[in-house]
C-alpha cells in the first residue's frame, strides 16, 4: 500500500501490488487508475457490475492484455508481462471464466500444455505421456477425491469436471498467486463447496488468492477483503466484517457507499 520500508517488511503487506492501472479499449477507458494490494494468505475479491473492469484486471495480471499505464509489483519487484507465459513464469496461476481449455486435447494434455514432460532421449525429446498422465490423475484426485480417466478429451466432460481440470492446470506450477474468475458460476452445490474448500486451503497455505464473484453472499463468506469496482475505478476497499452485503450491493450499483469509502468520489462516475 505504501512505499515505507518498515511496512514492506511486515508479513501481511502487499505481496501483489497493483498501482494506477489504466486500460483503454478503442478510446473508451475501461480501467482508470486502479490500485489495490494482495497479501500472502489473503483472499481478496473483486466485485462490480458487468463492465466494471474485473475481467480486464484478470487479463492484465495474466499477461493477456498490456495496460496502457500503471505498475504491477510482485514481492516488491516491478514486473511486466509481455505474454501469458511471462505471468505463469512469475507465479500467477489463473482459472479463466471460460476455463481456457483446448477441447481437442485430453485432460492430461491440457494440464501439461506448454510445460510437457519429455523423455531424455539422445536425439528426439519424446513426450513422457505416462508420467504426465500419472501426475495429472494424482493432482485431480487430490483436488476432487474422485478417479479420473485423464486420456479423455475435455470436450466430453461436464461443467464441474472441466472446472476441476482448469483448476488443476493452474495448480500444477504451484503458483504463489491464484486468480479465479467466476469459479463457481456453473457449478452444482457439491462442487461449489469443493471449490470453497480449495480456496480456503490455498490461503491457509500462504497463497494469495484473488477472486471474481457475482454472488455477494459468497463474497462475504470467502473474502478477507473486497475491492469494489465501478466504471473501471476502485470505489472502495473493505475488510471482512466491516461491511454488509446490502451496503456492498448498493455501492457497486452507485447508490451508496462502503464503510470507509472515499466520500469525495462522485456517485455517478
Amino acid at each position: 500500500m505504501t512505499d515505507s520500508p518498515l511496512l514492506a517488511a511486515e508479513p501481511r503487506t502487499g505481496y501483489l501490488e497493483v498501482d494506477g492501472l489504466v486500460h483503454r479499449f478503442g478510446g473508451r477507458t475501461v480501467l482508470d487508475e486502479v490500485s489495490f494490494s494482495l497479501s500472502r494468505g489473503e483472499v481478496a475479491c473483486l466485485v462490480g457490475e458487468n463492465g466494471a473492469g474485473k475481467s480486464t484486471i484478470v487479463n492484465i495480471l495474466g499477461g493477456v492484455l498490456r495496460p496502457a499505464d500503471g505498475a504491477i509489483k510482485l514481492a516488491g519487484k516491478p514486473v511486466s508481462f509481455g505474454s501469458p507465459a511471462d505471468a505463469l513464469e512469475a507465479g500467477i496461476g489463473i482459472v479463466y471464466q471460460d476455463l481456457a481449455l483446448c477441447d481437442n486435447l485430453s485432460i492430461a494434455e491440457n494440464i501439461f500444455l506448454a510445460r510437457e514432460k519429455t523423455n531424455r532421449a539422445p536425439l528426439v525429446r519424446a513426450l513422457a505421456r505416462r508420467a504426465m498422465e500419472a501426475e495429472a490423475s494424482e493432482l485431480l484426485h487430490s483436488l476432487t477425491a474422485a478417479a479420473w480417466d485423464v486420456q479423455q478429451k475435455t470436450s466430453r466432460l461436464s461443467g464441474g469436471q472441466r472446472q476441476s481440470v482448469a483448476i488443476a492446470r493452474a495448480m500444477l506450477l504451484d503458483p504463489s498467486i491464484v486468480i479465479l474468475d467466476e469459479p463457481t458460476a456453473a457449478l452444482s452445490v457439491r462442487h461449489v463447496d469443493e471449490v470453497h474448500r480449495l480456496i480456503k486451503g490455498l490461503a491457509s497455505r500462504g497463497r494469495a488468492v484473488l477472486l471474481i464473484l457475482h454472488d455477494l453472499n459468497e463474497v462475504a463468506e470467502l473474502a478477507d477483503k473486497v475491492i469494489a469496482l465501478r466504471h473501471g475505478r476502485v470505489i472502495g476497499v473493505s475488510a471482512r466484517g466491516a461491511y454488509t452485503v446490502d451496503q456492498l450491493l448498493l455501492a457497486i450499483n452507485g447508490v451508496g457507499h462502503l464503510p470507509g469509502q472515499d466520500k469525495d468520489l462522485p456517485d455517478d462516475l
Partner: peptide
C-alpha cells in the same frame, strides 16, 4: 512427431483453440 512430441500437441492446441493455447502459456 505429431503424436509423440510437444510440438505435435502444441500444433493441435493452437489449431484447436488459439486463445486457450495462448493463455496456457504457449507462444
Amino acid at each position: 512427431a505429431l503424436r509423440k512430441t510437444a510440438f505435435g500437441v502444441h500444433l493441435l492446441a493452437v489449431g484447436g483453440s488459439r486463445a486457450s493455447a495462448r493463455r496456457a502459456g504457449l507462444s
